[in-house]
Design a protein around this nucleic acid. Sequence first.
RNA 1: AGGACUAUAGCUCAGUUGGUUAGAGCGCCACCUUGACAUGGUGGAGGUCAGCAGUUCGAAUCUGCUUAGUCCUACCA
Length: 931
Amino acid sequence: MEKTYQPQSIEQPIYQRWEKSGAFSPQGSGEPFSVMIPPPNVTGTLHMGHAFQHTLMDAMIRRERMKGKRTLWQPGTDHAGIATQMVVERQLQAENLTRHDLGRENFIEKVWEWKAKSGGTISDQMRVMGDSVAWDKERFTMDPGMSAAVQEVFVRLFDEGIIYRGQRLVNWDPVLHTAISDLEVISEEENGFMWYFRYPLADDVKTAEGKDYIVVATTRPETMFGDEAVAVAPDDERYKDLVGKEIILPLANRRIPIIADDYVDKEFGTGCVKITPAHDFNDNEVGKRHNLPLTNIFTDDAAINDIAPEKYRGLDRFDARKVVVEDFEALGLLEKIDDHKLKVPRGDRGNAVIEPYLTNQWYVAVESLAQPAIKAVEDGDINFVPKQWENTYFAWMKDLQDWCISRQLWWGHQIPAWYDADGKVYVAHSEEAVREKYQLADSVVLTRDNDVLDTWFSASLWTFATQGWPEKTEDFMLFSESDVLVTGFDIIFFWVARMIMMTLKFTDNIPFKTIYITGLIRDERGDKMSKSKGNVIDPLDLINGIDLDSLVAKRTSGMMQPRLAEKVAKATRDTYPDGIQAYGTDALRFTLCSLASGGRDIKFDLNRLEGYRNFCNKIWNATRYVLMNTEEFDCGQNGGDYELSVADRWIISKLQKTEVAVNQAFETHRYDLAAQALYEFMWHEYCDWYLELSKPVLWDENSTDKQLLGTRRTLVRVLEAFLRLAHPMMPFLTEEIWQKVAPMAAIKAADDEQTIMLASYPEADVEKMDETAEADIEWIKSVIEGIRNIRGEMNIAPSKALPILLRNGSEQDYVRLQDNKVFLQKLAKLEAIQWLAQGESAPMSATALVGEMEVLVPMAGLIDKEAEIGRLQKELDKALKDLQRIEGKLGNEGFIAKAPEAVVAKEKEKLADLTSIVAKLKEQKDSIEAL
RNA sequence: AGGACUAUAGCUCAGUUGGUUAGAGCGCCACCUUGACAUGGUGGAGGUCAGCAGUUCGAAUCUGCUUAGUCCUACCA
């Protein structure tokens, strides 16, 4: 073995072996366990969120697979309507073409070409992550099976009246020319203006103040062509008399009424609101209440249409805004302009300002679907982890809007609806099916709806459509009710809720039993990672490493503003002055597991990753030690008599406890605790103590064959079990080592290939827990640590062998000493150990206490008197502080009376111990001072 | 505006149903290249658990308020 752990040389060859072996696909006939991957966007690349979620999914799947379950981790990607269409359109743009130049059919062909060539990026990256997904079952939301399921669902929902077509305001992206759902609109505060316009009153009416106009405030002057009323609050004294009167809409020279509506807040602005029912969601509601006409003033590009006076026609909305304001000013109707912060809605893909726009769209009426979906979570059929996310889910579900599912794109599932010449709509799987279903004559000309479905529509069918639905296939029966969904909170609405609704509707079953919501990985400063901020960390760079210049180049590429690029470059150089080292997949995975504590936000800390890379190296080197001492020898593979030392029994006992802790942590989705238990065991028990305790046995010429066999056997077997225990989190390293260690531990996997993936997952054996051995080792550790403390504090060279004396020990101490002398001598580097009988005198010494027993290190020539007094004083102060606290507690009558007996007894015991410690320390200090 | 969450060592975070001497990793200080490992070993320093009040024999843990920060939802034209 190499002297240090080199991840890059072991990982990918192992993955290739795994994938070839077929072990990723469901095995055997055990109980099914399935996890459906949240299908990543086919245009996407692996980001930290994926790496995090995939690591957890893979850890679960690997563990269940090792436990003998018939596991399926279903992979696949989603077709990402807008994103994919944009990618391909951008390619066309480079050739000065638009999709319209190609036509729909040719364009879609182009998209498929792109997918074949570039759509596999994320799959390749998943292989680097070690994801044990069933590649032979990989699905794509546009593949034939999924498409058939989508059609089936659409037709059924339409026939039931749950899907309908309606004309209403939608969020319109005037650049991408499509409707988007309200979830895809991001409203952020931006700086803008508030314009105050005078709207002249008609028929010589005057306000209470005697003015012949009223003033409305607006952030969107260009929409004034669509104004159908001016609203005031019903109880607003200022305008009470004007309700029912009319104003003359300037520029358009139309008469519109003044109405009273509760929607108006009389404290805000002037108390007068212009109402534009076709271009504002709130105004639309007001318009409905007052039967106002819907006057659309925009084209699909959000330019002014022919409703407006000629001068404004064809002007883009923002140009129109300028002209309108100028014209108001020219007419003397501009009262004032204030700076104003407002929320501007933008599309999450193209970033264009979204327009509320009147169009015909397809909707899903969600109410009947929502009820069972709420109930499934209320009844506990579906559980959120952490539980608090239920609230988020309920809050949204109970205030659900109908879901706009049509998109004016070319890439996606085209809606299976046809229209006749009169615009009557027919829905079925194909034109042929339509004619049959609705008994239409061949002479009736039908044209298909151009729109496609929202990508999330197909994604919502993921758990069952991937398993063969609507056929009741074996896969469908076994796996479609999956066990755990792992995802981020940002798509609870987009995906999780919709998946629950659709799955309950069409399979009468839940899509998953548990929803594990992960935290969001942020950068080292706690900022959300985003390309535009240039603070993205690519998980592959953590695995493979990247030099500083490449990292800077990567982060600043494609940045529009050079100034921003400069800032990003500087921040990157400050944070990663040496670039990023290659830490390997296992270290990254273990780090991610250790961060999975249920918190909402996770700051990614490179130091943590480095620490766990070092942990990998620790495991690697522990293995080297084990192999060096066992490879050439009998380790009990074929039986043979052996004898276990106290250290052997201790580490075996600790292993059982670790197995309990790790399994429990997995069951409760506390991957951080599992990681911590593994780390603690391997580093601080196995390496720090057990390996050291094995040396005196292995290197002692007087050790018997039975003792040697016992220790070698334990060394190998405990390591082997640890590897299986850790495998779900660090698959590559454990496989690599296991190949060498398992045969020596006489452990075999369930398959011919002999991969740790199919070896059994360790379960604790209560019989092997050994409290006596643990107490004995605790005693040994206390003695050694006492001596090491004196060495450390007194600056005694580690190479200097010390004589020690033991005083005031009990019979048990004596027995323990006799049994473990060698361990003490070796690990504390002792030259001699002398047991003092009661009353026997000792030379002046530094003291450590192990219970009642005093461990004495003679000071002669080694230890400075003052230093030892100082050290004792420090210990004394600490003990006295504790003593005081406990005395206070026990002096409290309420405590004695009301606390449980066990607690009181424990405090009393502590008091006794501390009293004795204090007395001994004092005595020791006094006698040294008396010198 | 409503709701949720967070606040523990210099940094990143654990801390189960209230009973601790409040832990870990990284960082820091001192010593050490001994035959698994300097991606290491040994020892050590470091915390009024955001603040205030309350419940309790007992609070990092439960309740209320305050402060600071984050997020979500709804938004004022």
